[in-house]
């Protein structure tokens, strides 16, 4: 009997105390991963802690600094926000790609991040936007980058008595934008076989002055590929530099063969995605 109790805390502190008090307490965000995982035979008896009744956890605010995102806000609500979309189109498209309309109605970026699947769509998109995770524990809060937050396949850096309180994403610099692409066999519903997020900053003449490239589903965690970013920086994103970025991404990847694709295929396709995402990000940055 995996889910043995259900708790609705009245405050963040209350939630942290629940985590401390219960051996197998788990935060229920959208539930689209947790409820399925709880059905596995190996699952321990869970006490689920639902934070969706706390307003800060299900809302997103934009101020002069940038976006402060409640980790349990549904992807459906998140992706409908035009203000967020205009700032972080790549992050929004990553969130939009998670599952069906029905799954979007429940799934959240915080859940996607904490679940830390190697194939999570929003993680590379958060990484190229230098997002920060605000973690609340019994002794207060701490902030870590997304790459430090995700520590391995399905694991994150939080202690048992910590929870993700917010995700902060700074407003992009001028002429900077992002894009996220993933490869799936069908047009929807699948888990990413490979994913790539790219953020670029363009000079007025179209030269790329800054770039960040992150790839997903091709290693135990999403990874930043500096070599790919370097290949783009200083170029006008011509075919040669794009191909160099693609090759760098392929080289940096360390994929597995499974029911979703072969290692060989993933390594190749992640490069293709980096190229294509870089062009989309550049178009967006140039239009700004």
């Amino acid at each position: 009997m995996p889910v043995i109790d259900y708790k609705v805390p009245q405050s963040v502190d209350d939630a942290v105390s629940l985590l401390e008090a219960n051996e197998n307490a788990k935060i229920l965000a959208g539930g689209t991963d947790l409820i399925i995982q709880s059905r596995a035979q190996s699952s321990p008896d869970l006490v689920v802690v639902d934070l969706k009744s706390l307003p800060d956890f299900v809302s997103a605010n934009i101020n002069s600094e940038g976006l402060s995102l409640g980790p349990s806000m549904s992807c459906a609500e998140f992706t409908a926000r035009e203000d967020i979309k205009s700032l972080f189109p790549g992050l929004v498209e990553a969130a939009f790609l998670i599952g069906s309309t029905q799954v979007q109605g429940r799934a959240s970026i915080g859940g996607n991040l904490c679940n830390a699947s190697p194939a999570a769509d929003t993680i590379p998109a958060l990484m190229v936007n230098n997002a920060l995770c605000v973690i609340q524990g019994p002794k207060g809060e701490r902030r870590v980058s997304v790459e430090d937050f995700v520590t391995g396949v399905a694991s994150n850096c939080m202690a048992k008595n910590e929870l993700l309180k917010a995700i902060l994403v700074a407003t992009p610099a001028s002429r900077t934008s992002d894009a996220y692409l993933r490869f799936i066999p069908r047009s929807e519903m699948d888990i990413a076989v490979a994913g790539a997020a790219v953020s670029v900053t363009l000079e007025t003449d179209g030269t790329c002055s800054k770039a960040i490239v992150a790839i997903g589903a091709v290693a135990p965690t999403a990874i930043l590929v500096d070599a790919a970013a370097k290949a783009l920086i200083g170029s006008k994103l011509d075919e040669t530099s794009l191909q160099a970025a693609a090759d760098a991404a392929s080289a940096a990847s360390n994929p597995i063969t499974d029911r979703r694709g072969t290692a060989e295929f993933r390594r190749h396709v992640v490069g293709v995605l980096v190229k294509r995402a870089a062009l989309i990000a550049a178009k967006r940055a140039g239009d700004k």
């Binding site: 229920l28 959208g30 549904s74 029905q102 799954v103 109605g105």
Partner: peptide, 9 residues
């Protein structure tokens, strides 16, 4: 909000 009721407790 449209959801799958199998993914809601």
């Amino acid at each position: 909000r449209l959801v799958c009721s199998c993914l809601v407790l």
